[in-house]
């Protein structure tokens, strides 16, 4: 069974998540309090700069096909995945109503790069072109049928980020006239919150999965 040789431990997954979280925290610390509201483009750029090396390095290290694919090949996959994912995220956001005016371009680009780092790049690094794994990322069946630890590790934060961003857009039409209701601020907040929730969910799922596997082998 394939899961035997490429299975990673719960601890590794937790460490990966902690590293990613540290990247976000570093970006937050560098930007300072409230920077996302006052200058979203700058804050998002910091997120991209801090998070990109960490995410690509960590998930390339955790790549699935360790034998056939070198670390650098995985890094290259991540680097290609970054703009591709950004394009997909930007498409989704614009179709859902993100403004396309010139003054929003920069923010939209950085936002979609950041979203790509939270959603697309990890999967690109780990899975490469494995169709069956991409299928799992796209569907929600992982929550019902037990599969690999990697799938939990990748999919849950990704789904969390997308769902969080989607929910984060809801307060935008309210007439509270707060600065954070602007695009892409509250969407980013939602995405990060969803990402963090997704991380913890993935850890819980991994723990449950490990216990189940151990129970089965015993």
């Amino acid at each position: 069974m394939r899961a035997e040789f490429s299975q990673i431990s719960a601890l590794t997954a937790a460490a990966a998540h902690v590293l990613c979280f540290a990247g976000l925290a570093a970006a937050h610390a560098l930007a300072g309090r409230g920077a996302l509201v006052s200058d979203p483009a700058l804050a998002l750029r910091l997120v991209v700069v801090c998070e990109a090396p960490i995410v690509i390095a960590v998930f390339s290290y955790l790549r699935r096909d360790t034998q056939s694919c070198s670390f650098f090949k995985a890094v290259a996959r991540g680097l290609i995945g970054l703009p591709v994912g950004a394009f997909l995220n930007a498409f989704g956001a614009i179709v859902l109503g993100a403004p396309v005016g010139i003054k929003y371009w920069i923010a939209t680009i950085y936002w979609s790069l950041a979203m790509s780092l939270l959603t697309f790049v990890p999967a690109a690094c780990v899975f490469g072109t494995s169709k069956i794994d991409w299928q799992n990322v796209l569907s929600h069946s992982i929550y019902f049928t037990p599969i690999d630890v990697e799938n939990y590790m990748i999919s849950a934060p990704c789904h969390g980020a997308v769902l969080g961003a989607w929910l984060g857009a809801w307060p935008m039409p309210l007439d509270w006239e707060r600065p954070w209701q602007e695009w892409p601020i509250c969407v980013t907040y939602g995405a990060v919150a969803g990402y963090l929730v997704g991380m913890s969910v993935s850890l819980v799922l991994i723990a449950v999965h490990k216990r189940r596997v151990r129970a089965k082998t015993d």
Partner: peptide, 8 residues
């Protein structure tokens, strides 16, 4: 906004 968001 609601309808466009849901439909999209």
């Amino acid at each position: 906004y609601t309808w466009h968001f849901l439909t999209s």
